[in-house]
Write a protein that binds this DNA or RNA. Sequence first.
DNA 1: TATTGTTATACTCTATAACTATA
DNA 2: TATAGTTATAGAGTATAACAATA
Lengths: 144, 144
Amino acid sequence: MSVDKVDTRYLETLVGYNARRAALRIIEAFIARMAVFDLRPVDFSVMSLIHHNPGITSRQLCATLGILPPNLVGMIGALEKRGLIQRERHRIDGRAMSLYATPEGTALMQQAEHEASALEVDQTGRLTAAERRTLMRLLQKVYL
Amino acid sequence: MSVDKVDTRYLETLVGYNARRAALRIIEAFIARMAVFDLRPVDFSVMSLIHHNPGITSRQLCATLGILPPNLVGMIGALEKRGLIQRERHRIDGRAMSLYATPEGTALMQQAEHEASALEVDQTGRLTAAERRTLMRLLQKVYL
DNA sequence: TATTGTTATACTCTATAACTATA
DNA sequence: TATAGTTATAGAGTATAACAATA
């Protein structure tokens, strides 16, 4: 026999389960609304960090976002090919590459971040501003 | 030039970013501590739902957990092969399969859920019990 | 000797199309 | 005609090993 209504009460006591479900919900909406910019969540994160940290290296991006170096190479290459970022050999450490947003990349990210922030408010519409701040603070207490 | 310290302040204003980081942190610990039971997060979720919903169908599992049917088949097959669950043809709807935890599966899940709950407390050690309840409630307000 | 970036490659996860048995 | 489960397969995401250039 099937069950009338699925009892999910146990899983809902787990922070990991709830955080994953919430993240997937928001990311789903993010993908849909960021399609006009042709930016996946990971591309957005990478571009945002370069935008706010001119000269950041690939290694620093990997460490910050938890991306493995081999998996970043293609993304960086694609963003450079699109004219959104520029790569320069690091002035002091010749092994590293410094990354910069181009004027086109900067303009794109100003729009994209504005849209992302608007989307966040939409997706968390059932939360008050205070609850939203609390949620952020508690999540950071978990992973930072 | 690389940057001294990476500025992540903008990304940290996004619920999606924070929820994903927190979820990944907890899931990482989950994978490590559930290895003794040979249960990945998805296996744990599936087994837990079967455990608490005797007779649940594959379709109901898919709808509840957001898994696509073709991707559930192999998991169910593996769990059955391990003797943790039993599949029976649904008594009324001959197309569906009703799923039940075996005594072995039930015993395993009692241990596994106990361990998962303990792990949750460890991973959210920087939160008070009240904060943990608040976090859960706010996350559910986002995705439910 | 260690680190940055890179290539190649394997592995896992997720998604799509099409089939069968039943409703 | 629609749905539950299944098969095969494609695509995206993530991981490991090894290498060249530089520290």
